[in-house]
């Protein structure tokens, strides 16, 4: 068991991550195609994150070693892109667009209802570990704003009343 020490703010603070050997072997397998290819760091992080929905530090170490990139840079890149998370997240990631087109279409009300429904704050994970809610820049589905994206599926033209039914599919 490894304790994740969070650097700044709420990220990773005190959350415990289980990085067993089986998992790290899996990480090694996933990143081996990028061996000594520092230019593929972003792609490698995508692949690693797909295993557990976040990037545990031991996994980032494996990435650093395999791609031959300093750990500091791996961490710098992992904390730059909003799709990556260095702290544990739920099984499903709900992304909500807060950009102007969604804002105009009433995204604030959807956000409010969603957080209420799930009982979490923005950026938080539900106590059952099923959902993590994150804000996102434009999801590119403004034609059906307001929209949310759960993993790779978009739900558009939402009104608050639609939410329970949408969420039920993932529970």
């Amino acid at each position: 068991m490894l304790k994740m020490r969070g650097p700044v703010g709420p990220e990773g603070s005190g959350v415990v991550c289980e990085c067993d050997d089986v998992f790290l072997t899996e990480v090694q397998r996933v990143v081996s195609v990028y061996k000594e290819r520092p230019e593929d760091l972003v792609q490698a992080l995508h692949d690693v994150q797909s295993l557990r929905n976040y990037l545990p530090r031991e996994a980032l170490r494996v990435v650093a070693r395999t791609l031959d990139v300093p750990e500091s840079r791996v961490y710098g890149v992992a904390t730059f892109y909003s799709m990556f998370s260095t702290s544990p997240r739920g099984r499903h990631i709900i992304r909500i667009c807060e950009s102007a087109p969604c804002h105009v279409a009433g995204a604030a009300e959807i956000i409010n209802s969603l957080l209420n429904e799930l009982g979490v704050e923005m950026g938080g994970t539900t106590s059952d570990g099923i959902f993590t809610v994150e804000t996102s820049s434009c999801l590119g589905v403004c034609g059906v704003a307001p929209a949310i994206m759960i993993d790779d599926t978009v739900y558009g033209n939402l009104v608050s009343e639609d939410l329970p039914a949408v969420l039920r599919r993932y529970r």
Binding site: R37, E39, D40, V42, Q43, H46, Y81, S82, S137
Partner: peptide
Amino acid sequence: KGAGAYVCGEETALIESMEGK
């Protein structure tokens, strides 16, 4: 693939990202 950064639409940021940075 990008990973969530609006600024990567700027061509040199995009290039940096493609170089794994």
